[in-house]
Design a protein around this nucleic acid. Structure first.
Lengths: 337, 337
DNA sequence: CCACAGCCTGGAAGCGGTTCCAGCATCGTC
DNA sequence: GACGATGCTGGAACCGCTTCCAGGCTGTGG
């Protein structure tokens, strides 16, 4: 089968022969190494051009012990949830940063056990030069696997129970504080919060930001309900909160999805937004503009997150100094608060 | 820098030495090749276990000329648009199919010129065993590049001006016909259509399906406006159509995004859906459930598309017989028609 | 004129596997 | 008992590139 247009690619030996030099000389030209005379360089470069030579990636990888590939691992119970625009944004950010390098991106959806073991194998067989990890739960075995593999690794967001040496994260704490302070600034005092999963760092940090802002304003946190970042959970949480705190006058939801659910629940309960209840979300990934009313929310740049993770990882691979960092968040004012 | 937990992985030579056999024998055990005695097999397997040996992926790749990696190339002018859930679904489908194999997924966003040249280089240096291509415009240079590289290639959707040897596509024509026939079945006759970009196969095929259904019902196509699959373009197209055909009683939009835009425009024009105007969309990627009213639409399974592309590609790589295919679409009834 | 440093050079040894092949037992058969 | 067929085996070549190293050349200063 298959077309036989696969005319074997020329090898470095053939280039060297044609240029009338040794293979090592040709290799030096290829890698712009020093100790190459002008004449040799010219001859080799001409031969390369004439033969249409391109170095074989695998052979080079074997010799240099560098594959030129980095992995982006996304660990999630539900592969469907990968369709979330969040991950798309990460990928866009990572890709755009990789374009500046000559690294390629290997994508691993490590949800199932099978996916995990494939990833483990990839790392242990030195199939990649480094790895970026997203959306790890605190107890995710992937963390150990990665650590044991001894490969450069950068986390996107911090796992709950340990802080990896290298990570890039959004300022969840500060963003939540910003959101709550905005509601306080509007004169609201009976502010409740819908948290994300408290088994995640983002979930707890945003909850903490809310409480800190309340306490600093001399108030006690007014009420909370835990969601899981999804719209449905936001609606459910909102109903619970309305039952327990009928007089609430503002809501900080730890994700736009949950805020959208909350808006729905509020409208069903006959509360008007923002007149009766002000609502602030978190993420600003597009949904926020399309809710009714459009959502005031905390903006975090997921693309930047991806870019910065990539930058840190490439520094690590190159053996340069680098540091973890926390990206700023900012409030985007729309109509809901 | 970096931790020095990188204790060098054992090599096959060390395994062989420990097992007291030659490297070739050890290799045979590893690859479950014939001509291995029971004793040899046991000894090697024990050595492998004791040493925690794992074959080096790169070395194997060099010897077998197989990288164990396939590329998924997504070509789009605007990298932002990659955040579209469409691509997320493709990736989920591809990944889940790859889990059954021992291939890994390399993701290439080939939007910019830089991205394209990186991809070209990847193919020419034999960095992958095969490639899947999505969202190519008719004149995309990528098509030539891929062809010249002589690598197994599978298209997701067909480019407009040539039909690749191997592709997987949704039944755009049939789906559009289905949608239009449904509107006809409701007794509507003044049915207009909002097409997708007519520079894409999906755009033209869906337009053709609409026309065929109209003609087969003895009607002449009532009106059309071209959009580009986005919500904004759908709204604009709807306004134009309302101007030109104020008495229209149904709309077939070639994407849910455009249908959502159309719904907005209709509501602004004071038309009620479905009473005054019935609306059918295309895609069923989640948005359709969240419009007001929920959208009757043509469902296509993007995950299946990804899965099938992967299946065809792996068959190709394995040198087995295989064939292109067109995946069925079906109508999903909601409230808009 | 010689010693020595410094640049180029090609040979050869790697990276870590797979695979061809000749050689050697062992077996069953005539 | 001689024979070929069969099953295992290890040596060696190979995949295509990088890199170490010894040696030859040139040029400079003493």
């Amino acid at each position: 089968m298959a077309t036989d247009t696969t005319r074997r690619q020329p090898t470095l030996d053939e280039v060297a022969a044609r240029a009338g030099v040794s293979r090592s000389a040709a290799s030096r030209v290829l890698n712009k190494a020093p100790h190459v005379s002008r004449a040799t360089r010219d001859a080799v470069e001409r031969a390369i051009k004439e033969l249409g030579y391109l170095p074989n990636r695998t052979a080079r990888a074997l010799a240099t012990r560098q594959t030129g590939i980095v992995a982006l691992a996304i660990s999630h119970d539900d592969p469907e949830l990968f369709a979330d625009p969040f991950f798309g944004q990460v990928i866009v950010g990572v890709s755009s940063a990789l374009e500046e390098t000559d690294l390629h991106l290997l994508l691993c959806l490590a949800s199932s056990g099978r996916g995990r073991s494939r990833l483990t194998n990839l790392l242990n067989t030195r199939g990649v030069d480094g790895i970026m990890l997203m959306a790890l739960r605190g107890d995710d075995p992937l963390a150990h696997i990665v650590r044991r593999a001894g490969l450069p690794a950068v986390y996107g967001g911090r796992p709950l129970h340990f802080t990896p040496q290298w990570y890039v994260d959004s300022d969840n704490l500060g963003g939540a504080r910003l959101a709550t302070e905005h509601l306080l600034g509007l004169g609201r005092t009976r502010i409740v919060t819908i948290t994300g999963e408290l088994g995640t760092e983002a979930g707890t940090a945003r909850y903490r930001g809310y409480r800190e802002a309340m306490v600093m304003a001399g108030l006690t946190p007014y009420g909370m309900a835990e969601g899981d970042f999804t719209e449905a959970s936001g609606a459910a949480a909102m109903k619970t909160l309305l039952d327990n705190h009928p007089d609430l006058d503002a809501v900080f939801a730890a994700s736009d999805n949950m805020a959208a659910g909350a808006l729905r629940a509020l409208s069903e309960a006959g509360r008007s937004v923002p007149a009766d209840v002000a609502v602030v979300g978190f993420d600003d990934l597009g949904i926020a503009e399309r809710t009714d009313p459009p959502l005031t929310t905390v903006h975090q740049s997921i693309q930047s997150l991806g870019k910065e993770m990539t930058r840190v990882l490439t520094e690590l691979i190159a053996g340069r100094e680098t540091a973890s960092l926390i990206l700023p968040t900012r409030l985007v004012l729309r109509d809901s608060a």
